[in-house]
Design a protein around this nucleic acid. Structure first.
Length: 642
RNA sequence: GCCGAUAUAGCUCAGUCCGGUAGAGCAGCUGAUUUGUAAUCAGCCGGUCGGCGGUUCGAAUCCGUCUAUCGGCUCCA
């Protein structure tokens, strides 16, 4: 008998050769019906694989991530089968599941291309094949046999993948007419796939390397119930409605102009208000935390960035230097604020008594982002960082780091992000040449971040290879109202720039010491942050940030004067808003205020004038009844703190 | 930068396949209406069909190129 341990701690005994599926059958028929794969001793496997030794066992169904992965991976094979039937001779690259379905990178035969117009016929074929309920059959093959198979088929991509595999570890999966090199696992048969939808077609470099050939990536999603697909498509529509590019236009927050240039956002009055309110709020917080605001120019001599190392690392891919006409001196558009701040540190000799020195700047920087990467406000070529650099003694790093994380959490909470995760971004040990600085400095910087995180109440994940080239980072990620995760600001511990700029301070021992720098930007960039805020709130900003907090809607033009009077009185209480004095019906004015997501509508007519009051309507909720101005101000303040 | 697609009025979009010099709704303007909780009515204005070049008697439509945008890939100090 073998002992199988389940996640709840129970251990059950089974005959050797029992499969995960058979074990599930013994537990409940419902579980058995739904189980698609299992994790056995930490290894994802087919549900029908017989177990021969003691093991830990986790069942996977459609309702967990691993189960979805199995389901979608199997759908990728189903799509491949359909493609092979429709495009004989098509070659296959890499075809896994991802967080949002599955994809397969393929090379269509004879230089043919596959476009969205071909999706319906591929989907139709997939459903047709799914209905055949073909089993996914696993088979262990020798390397020799595998090579022979794909040589005969003429699929050089699979042959290249085979090169990296050891003989004895190679498995094929076959369903229907299609056989693929695959580690598995797969769902038992294609019949479980009830709904499929191809979503995207695009290019993808073979093995993610842009010097390689580009394959066609076909992405899609599938579900065990047709209803799930409908719901998924509906959610996509919701996300589309929240697209910050669309809302930014509708609410007149920002714009782009072909003439000004790609990736160069221009903030319209309402958007600028929003952005400034965020900036002012953060600036206040920072001043309270001992930061000092500074300002630096938009360009700097190339030498500055040669010293910092940025020129060497990013120079080639940046906006190229500006030359002075007579002297031929070279200047760069500022891609980073830190070198300027380092020079500020060197303004005069520093004593340990003035550390930590915290220099903050809403600094606008310019980076030559690749054309294909530009995206609304979230990826641009000119943006303003809510940047600050903390120069401190090594023994102060941890406390400073913790203080920074506190500010970040408070600020993110204030604008409505409750679900914050911190990603500890470390060096990739495999590619040391991507980074500058000594191993010792890297080790202490990484340790400082890890230690600080242990003392802070925050969810963390660790990611190798995500560090900046000069130091490790703590990256903040938030989950928005639709459950999507976004990366915002970062905190970075840096031993390198102080070295490169030869920063020093006089210690209490009267000796020269090197300070440590902490880079930090809670929002990251104002542009990106606002784009995420727009999508999170769908344009219905927190009251304190709303460009207009109320709209006064007079029933007819006769009440415009009273409306302006109300506006003036509210302004005295720092409540801002507009009077809609157009010659329109009240229904129209309400509709327009609603679509502009103005939080409060104050309707004024004969009754309100007589009673010195306003009829309050809350955006998205409706009529709240009549209030006097003091009553409304109190009501407003109540909403403001919520 | 690479692959694929798109670009028509301020906005959203027809018209392009099959070449014969543009159309709707909204917005704007003017007038009427003076309105009680999500679009009052009427009239008018508005486009070198993204830029440039080519094919053609003739190009929004076909071809090339550039720019911008969209979806991916690669990248992200």
């Amino acid at each position: 008998m073998i002992n199988i341990k389940f996640p709840d701690g129970n251990v059950r005994q089974y005959e050797p050769g029992t499969s995960a599926f058979q074990m599930a059958e013994g537990i409940s028929s419902g579980l058995a019906r739904n189980v698609v794969s299992a994790t056995v001793n930490g290894q994802l496997t087919d549900r029908d694989l017989p177990l021969t030794a003691d093991a830990t066992m986790v069942f996977h169904t459609w309702n967990d991530d691993k189960g979805k992965e199995t389901f979608w991976h199997s759908t990728a094979h189903l799509m491949a089968e359909a493609l092979e039937a429709l495009y004989p001779g098509i070659k296959f690259g890499y075809g896994p599941a991802n967080e949002n379905g599955f994809f397969y990178d393929v090379e269509p035969p004879n230089g043919e291309s596959i476009s969205t117009e071909d999706f319906p016929k591929i989907e139709k074929k997939m459903i047709e094949l799914a209905r055949q309920k073909n089993d996914y059959v696993r088979r262990e093959v020798s390397k020799e046999e595998a090579v022979a198979y794909f040589t005969k088929k003429g699929d050089e991509y699979k042959l290249e993948l085979l090169e990296t595999l050891e003989d004895g570890t190679i498995t094929f999966y076959t369903q229907g007419e299609f056989t693929d090199l695959c580690r598995g696992p797969h769902i038992p048969n294609t019949g479980a796939i009830k709904a499929v939808k191809l979503m995207k077609v695009g290019g993808a470099f073979w093995r993610g390397d842009d010097s390689n050939k580009q394959l066609t990536r076909l992405s899609g999603i599938s579900f065990p119930k047709a209803k799930d697909l409908t719901e998924y498509l509906h959610n996509l529509e919701e996300a589309k409605k929240r697209d910050h590019r669309k809302i930014g236009k509708e609410l007149e927050l920002f714009m782009f102009s072909e003439k000004v240039g790609a990736g160069l956002p221009m903030w319209l009055p309402k958007g600028y208000q929003l952005r400034q309110r965020l900036a002012n709020y953060l600036e206040k917080k920072q001043e309270a935390a001992g930061y000092q605001q500074v300002a630096t120019p938009h360009i700097g001599k190339k030498e500055l960035y040669v010293t910092s190392g940025h020129w060497d690392k990013y120079g080639e891919d940046s906006f190229q230097p500006i030359k002075t006409p007579r002297e031929g001196e070279e200047f760069l558009l500022k891609p980073m604020n830190c070198p300027h701040h380092c020079e500020m540190y060197k303004f005069r000799p520093r004593s340990y008594k003035e550390l930590p020195l915290r220099l903050a700047e809403f600094g606008t920087v310019y980076r030559y982002e690749q054309t294909g990467e530009l995206h609304g406000l979230s990826r641009v070529r000119g943006f303003t960082q809510d940047d600050a650099h903390i120069f401190c003694m090594p023994e102060q790093v941890k406390a400073e780091f913790i203080a920074v994380v506190d500010i970040v959490q408070e600020v993110l909470g204030m604008v409505g992000f409750d679900d914050v995760t911190a990603q500890i971004s470390l060096r990739d040990p495999q590619t040391p040449d991507k980074y500058i600085g000594t191993d010792a400095n890297w080790a202490s910087a990484e340790q400082a971040i890890i230690d600080a995180c242990k003392e802070i109440d925050i969810k963390t994940v660790t990611a190798y290879g995500e560090a900046a080239f000069y130091g490790p980072k703590l990256d903040f990620m938030v989950r928005d109202a639709l459950g999507r995760q976004w990366q915002l600001g970062t905190v970075q511990v840096d031993y390198n720039l102080p070295d490169r700029f030869e920063l020093e301070y006089v210690g209490s021992d009267n000796e020269m010491h090197r300070p440590v720098m902490i880079h930090r930007a809670p929002f990251g960039s104002m542009e990106r942050f606002v784009s995420i805020l727009i999508e999170h709130t769908a344009g219905k900003f927190p009251l304190w940030l709303a460009p207009e907090q109320f709209a006064i809607l007079p029933i007819s033009e006769r009440f415009n004067d009273y409306a302006r009077n109300v506006q003036k009185q509210l302004a005295e209480h720092d409540i801002r808003g507009l009077v809609d004095d157009r010659n329109e019906t009240i229904g129209r004015k309400i509709r327009d205020s609603e679509t502009q997501h103005i939080p409060f509508m104050l309707i004024v007519g004969e009754n309100e004038v007589a009673a010195a009051s306003v009829a309050v309507r809350v955006q998205g909720e409706g009529d709240k009844g009549t209030m006097t101005l003091p009553e409304f101000a109190a009501f407003f303040c109540e909403q403001l703190v919520l």
